[in-house]
Design a protein around this nucleic acid. Structure first.
Lengths: 210, 210
DNA sequence: AATATGTTGATATATAATTAACATAGTAAA
DNA sequence: TTTACTATGTTAATTATATATCAACATATT
């Protein structure tokens, strides 16, 4: 499509807009102005208007934004109007927590299979999905047209798993391993680096006490 | 102290430098240039030098950076040269995963207590720490000079817990609940919003397929 | 000892992101 | 219908961030 290029900074704000709009919708609020949304999100009203206009004119002058419409539009923009088939590798503590989290399922992300390398884990069920041998992963991805791979392995195992995922046809990786995966550009990687987040907190904590 | 103000963009890159330097140290690499570090981190060499110089001249012209020294300095900058006492609230799947993760302990973050509101959880041990009634939280924070609070509760419970933490003396909150906590400025909040991360992946995935 | 090379730290330039300003379209009320 | 008001979408200004350049200096080599 290659329309206009929307900056990463904008993209990372979209989920927050979506979250608040969903909340407003749940509370039966019909309309909202950029100024009111500003109070909720702590972004400036100006920025909100500019962000949204990257994708189209969803508001109405003199009125504001219709909550239902905007929420739906943002959902479409974020790609939340469909089902994604995902697999998860690494059924340790974090892997189990992720697979048990209902929120993702509700948002359309279905974990179709869970893999581990430890035979002791094979057969255990998490949310009705049985843990199986990671040797089966590659075939499973191909046979079931899996799009998203969730990596909850150790740092050491992550790169190999990522490469196998990519090779088998996965185009999006949600990576929880503390490593930077090196893959072709056609694979999108979104990292959740908990260590980096905690270290940032530690830094800020120190600064705040000066 | 109020020295110079280092931008948030810089701060969020520091943990990555630290991670790679630790890796280099483990591999007995003695020295590294900004250019070599650039290859590892995918930041530009210029940016790396500029980032580091926010905190001092750690390198030597014509030589590069001494890995051991720089790693140690970055550790100090990030506040990783000491022990932090933390508590965790919400012993669900994610809470359990976080408390079981050895990495944080190794980095100096000690989970001193785990709280939940569900009586069925009371008494269960996670990493030798017994889950107890969240009613005890406030006193425990005060009595043990806890600095960091980790919130793994639902969105609904998070704000109240955060306020109680702040009131009892906690100055840093690591928040995993999908909500933006509203607290005084003297409390530092670092969010891990898994939903937002996943939605970003979903957006990028869509873009990549255009 | 002299010279070439490599690399930092500082400064200057370029790019990107955020905020502010405003014209205009649309709302709402008399 | 008229008028005053509201709030968007858009352009401009400002601020922040990233990149490029370069003098100073260390080290290795001749």
């Amino acid at each position: 499509m290659g329309n206009k290029k929307v900056s990463m900074a904008v993209i990372r704000r979209l989920p927050k807009y979506y979250r608040y709009l969903t909340e407003l919708l749940d509370n039966d609020i019909k309309r909202i102005s950029s100024q009111e949304l500003s109070k909720l999100t702590d972004f400036t009203a100006s920025q909100i208007r500019q962000d949204l206009n990257n994708f189209g004119g969803f508001g109405q002058q003199g009125y504001g934004y219709n909550v239902r419409d905007l929420q739906k539009e943002l959902g479409k923009i974020l790609g939340l109007d469909r089902i994604y088939k995902a697999i998860l590798v690494g059924a340790g503590n974090l892997g189990q927590a992720i697979s048990n989290y209902r929120g993702f399922n509700d948002a359309g992300f279905k974990i179709m299979a869970i893999f581990d390398k430890n035979p002791k884990m094979f057969g255990i069920k998490l949310m009705d999905v049985m843990i199986q041998d990671v040797d089966n992963m590659d075939d499973f991805i191909r046979d079931n047209d899996i799009e998203i791979g969730i990596i909850c392995t150790s740092k050491e195992g992550s790169q190999e798993i990522a490469e196998r995922m990519a090779k088998s046809g996965i185009t999006g990786i949600w990576n929880f391993a503390p490593a930077d995966l090196k893959l072709d550009d056609n694979v999108t990687v979104e990292n959740v680096h908990l260590n980096e987040s905690l270290f940032t907190l530690s830094y800020l904590l120190k600064e705040n006490n000066d």
